[in-house]
Design a protein around this nucleic acid. Structure first.
Lengths: 219, 219
DNA sequence: AAGTGAAAGTGATAACTTTCACATACATTA
DNA sequence: TAATGTATGTGAAAGTTATCACTTTCACTT
């Protein structure tokens, strides 16, 4: 690989890498061994030239005239994205969205290990979802003391987000995936926070349907 | 407004407009009547100069030396985004994710009207979630014939996505919000499709935690 | 073993987005 | 009513991202 530290990688590329990765996994499970940038293009809805340009940002993984070896490319992307080492994850808020994420196929295949989910509703404490035990939120602090966790997923009601987030300091957590509409900020830069607002999507599509969006037609 | 058609609006601006809109709604519910770009900046985590630049793209909504009238700006954004007319929405796949979306606070306030949800599981047919009736997926075609629906939200298993999407042709639907990991494409350009892959987010955060992301620190 | 086709990689260019410094105009106060 | 402070709006420049035509290299064929 050209550059093993990968500083200054635009977020746009990272998002696409994740798409390529999924695409490669699918192709592999179909028994395919080689894939062309034009195939990835069709499957991911991203132009072939962009696919190639993205990949060359990290090295030369292809075979000219042939395509990319799926196994090789896949493991390279995994290394680039840090998916080759297991990430331990907890989920806070086992409501419908939280449950959906716990049941999501594909997480486990991508080296994410859900250690536990936390909730406040007594009736589900002690049960488990997709083999992930549900603990009471009061146990969160103790759990973080005795377990090394890298990522927390927040699927609590928005108004709880700040309070919960403040409990995640001074532990091993480095990343927060925030699905509440509260916008969390990492004041001290201690962890990386990714805010995902699902309700925003409906508004965006409302605008886009007016065909006012600059149409960047995907190849 | 400078330009009533708003062609060529970058998607990045649209996404931020939705954030501003939410922010304005919150401020209004706190009894605020005026807001400064620097306030919006803090609340949305977007630089104040970006906020102003985004808004001037559509017109001059502010009062110099004072800020923006919340009511005025809010209704302008609603007009820009097409939120001033009611959008009728159906949801296909009333699993955990679908249920989460049906229960999401904020949709109804933004002029989205959920007409019905569709599923295949007999045990929930006839019930309702958040007052939205759940119908059998077999009824989808007939429903679309007798009801004008603008948006479909897809929260079915990924492998069903294509099949379902093909049933959405030749009706009033213009936009599809696809939460499955299948990437749908609008071959004929008949409708606008927005693919949202939640599982991608975990992979992105995995990369970002390595601090390799070009850090565009929000103000 | 040379020729051919096919697809990756490259570097310059174009298009887009963000940033910045500054001009502008409103509201408030004296 | 004039002066002042404050926050918006603007246009140029910087920075970033995508595009495109072209070169390179590999595999396969004859």
């Amino acid at each position: 690989m050209r550059n093993s530290s990968f500083n200054n990688v635009p977020e746009s590329i990272v998002g696409r890498l994740a798409s390529y990765h999924r695409c490669l996994k699918n192709a592999a499970s179909n028994g395919q061994t080689v894939i062309k940038s034009s195939d990835i293009s069709k499957l991911c809805g991203i132009k072939a030239t962009v696919v190639r340009k993205d990949l060359t940002h990290f090295g030369e993984f292809g075979i000219k005239g042939k395509g990319y070896n799926i196994t090789t490319l896949s493991s390279n992307i995994e290394e680039i994205m840090g998916l080759n080492t297991e990430k331990r994850v907890i989920l806070i808020g086992a409501g419908n969205l939280g449950t959906a994420l716990l049941k999501y196929p594909g997480f486990s295949g991508a080296n994410f290990k859900f250690l536990a989910a936390f909730d406040i509703r007594e009736e589900i404490i002690g049960t488990s979802i997709n083999s992930v035990p549900i603990l009471h939120i009061d146990k969160l602090g103790a759990f973080l003391k005795s377990n090394e966790v890298q990522i927390a997923i927040l699927t609590v009601p928005s108004q709880e987000a700040e309070t919960i987030a403040s409990q995640l300091h001074n532990c091993s957590i480095k990343g927060i995936l925030n699905f509440t509409s509260a916008i969390l900020k990492s004041d001290d830069g201690k962890f990386y926070i990714r805010n995902i607002d699902l309700s925003k999507e409906l508004e965006v599509i409302s605008f886009c349907m007016k065909k006012c969006l600059k149409n960047k037609e995907e190849k």
